[in-house]
Design a protein around this nucleic acid. Sequence first.
DNA 1: GAAAAGATTACCT
DNA 2: GGTAATCTTTTCC
Length: 166
Amino acid sequence: MARDLLGATLTVRFGGKVRSARIVETEAYMRNDPASHAFRGPTPRNRSMFSRPGTLYVYRIHQVVCANLVARRGEAVLLRAAAVKGLVPKAASGPGRLCRVLGISREDDGEDAVSGRRIEVRLGGERVKGVLVGRRVGIRRAVDRPLRFALENESAVSRIRSFTTG
DNA sequence: GAAAAGATTACCT
DNA sequence: GGTAATCTTTTCC
């Protein structure tokens, strides 16, 4: 699903406005994955990660928030970068910047992104080409698993140098 | 209760 | 390339 979300459209509704973005970088956090927030089972923070597929899991880290989409119960995809319509490419390069520029906050934690009240993810439909694969960023455990995905030739992708495949 | 760690970012050299 | 800022959650006593 992390792969399939590349090229998907993420739409967020503010007050009266709509901001739309193309997802260009993701990471997968799986079951039995020591790097996953869900590894040690449900806690108050990661509760929504065990909810239905399509649920948003939004958490705070340092000074920022990051957003995930639940793939299966206990597994989620971190949205790392997107190309936002009408903004410079680097505006949403990185999970914290992505949430900031799209107005995603912890109040969105647990919301459904498929039926889409405020936030909606719509898959592109066609299979994208030129997918880069690499190690996940910023983790200390399970660092070697190839669970980071990004689109080639997208300047919104963060830390492009660290990819191993592509 | 207290301490440590962290799916980051901005700014430094 | 490295590190400080900053604050919430988890874990441990």
